[in-house]
Design a protein around this nucleic acid. Structure first.
Lengths: 240, 240
DNA sequence: TAGTGGTCTAGACCACGAA
DNA sequence: TCGTGGTCTAGACCACTAA
């Protein structure tokens, strides 16, 4: 067996080297195909088996490898994803529709008590209020009222409003990584009905979102969806 | 140090014994408080340090413990959860309400084409159809129509219907670990309106769920919630 | 029977943090 | 200085799978 001969002095830890070697090996591998056996990696890298196991543990925890006692270690089949956090733009693209956004309002405001509490800032602090009518393949889908914490987004208004809020936040390193949605069925307000071009008293789906990036609230929003043009899909995973 | 003296012959693996000992220890512990050190557990259980580390690895991966090099191991502060997958019963308890369930129908049926496709079985296969009216603190909240894959649940109907479906599934090792919800705002059907005791044409929130355990679909359901008594809360995480 | 992963031992040296 | 977790070794026996 060809021993690679790792040098600890080169800085990289052995288990990291083994892990990244295997990670690269399986990156383009067929799901279900064999990964190198633990003892094979022991021989190849000249390390102890515990070290190899430590390396593989990470990949198993990441869901990339699966150990089968008595058989070997295998590349997992692609797994079901949990609770993806997507923006309207990305969501529509995933459904094969063309997202569009018409800004109805975009200005700096002083946060009222409700918005301040949701954004975890003080009443009167500067916020960006951005109201949009959103379409998919030309059809009106929803009205969105978003408030952004301006302290985190200096110069955001001046930069010109982007199409995708989340992509723009991502460019500033503030793409939300966690969000909490409150979802309810409602009767459209008069204003909503007018903007969505539905009859007064029509049914709408309301989604209120608080989105966090780097442990800070960057966006709170409230969106009213036309009932006939939108179903929300959510994937949920178990509590660990 | 008082050595407990584990016996492998008693069936439980040593690292499991250590893990569960620590899990119980930290269950009610203050966030940020110290867990026993690895060497302390080595002495207490008379096992090798690698065994203790294997035990703690699981708790660290579950997010219950945090290792700080040079300082020790600590109980983590409660983290934001992502996409928790809860049942109605658990959800209502979390909100501090008393969940109740009134069975309207519980019988074996032959799957129709739609249910069969959702459950990934064949048309005509046996399914359990369970329809319930559900209350929280005596107030009607929703009607739920659930179909269960009977092949996975032999004797389920005969066992008497439980209060919490998910807890009952858990006892059979089939608690869902992944689910997909489709959420929409709808106008109540005549039947829904009658059962929910709302006016004809009232607004309801519809949630259709496919729930999987061990990579198999165990439950598909469709629930109609009273708009005035239920808001759905969902936590979403980034795509890993 | 040979190979696999699962478990386990009894040590070792290191870098880091607190006293 | 001492205790902590991080890394690592060179073995061992087990249950299981496949040939």
């Amino acid at each position: 067996m060809n021993v690679v001969g790792l040098k600890r002095t080169e800085g990289t830890l052995k288990h990291v080297q083994v892990r990244e070697y295997v990670r690269a090996l399986i990156a383009d591998a067929e799901p279900g195909s064999s990964a190198p056996s633990e003892r094979e990696l022991v021989a190849r890298f000249g390390v102890a088996r515990m070290t190899v196991r430590q390396a593989l543990d990470v990949l198993v925890n990441e869901g990339k490898l699966e150990r089968v006692p008595g058989r070997g270690t295998f590349v997992t089949h692609p797994r079901r994803r949990v609770g993806r956090l997507s923006s309207f733009t990305e969501d529509m693209r995933l459904r094969g529709l063309l997202p569009e956004s018409q800004t109805l309002l975009a200005r700096r405001e002083q946060a009222g008590p409700g918005v301040a509490r949701a954004l975890e800032i003080s009443s009167g602090d500067s916020v960006i209020h951005w109201k949009r009518l959103r379409r998919a393949d030309q059809n009106i889908v929803c009205v969105e009222d978003a408030y952004l914490n301006e302290v985190l987004l200096p110069g955001f208004l001046q930069a010109g409003m982007p199409t995708s809020l989340y992509e723009a936040l991502g460019e500033r390193g503030l793409r939300p990584t966690w969000a909490e949605d409150s979802i309810s069925a409602e009767v459209a307000t008069e204003e909503e009905a007018g903007l969505l071009e539905v009859a007064a008293g029509a049914v709408v789906l309301h989604v209120s979102r608080r989105a966090l990036a780097q442990e800070k609230v960057v966006e709170v929003s409230r969106t009213a969806f036309r009932q006939d043009r939108f179903t929300l899909y959510v994937q949920l995973g178990d509590v660990g």
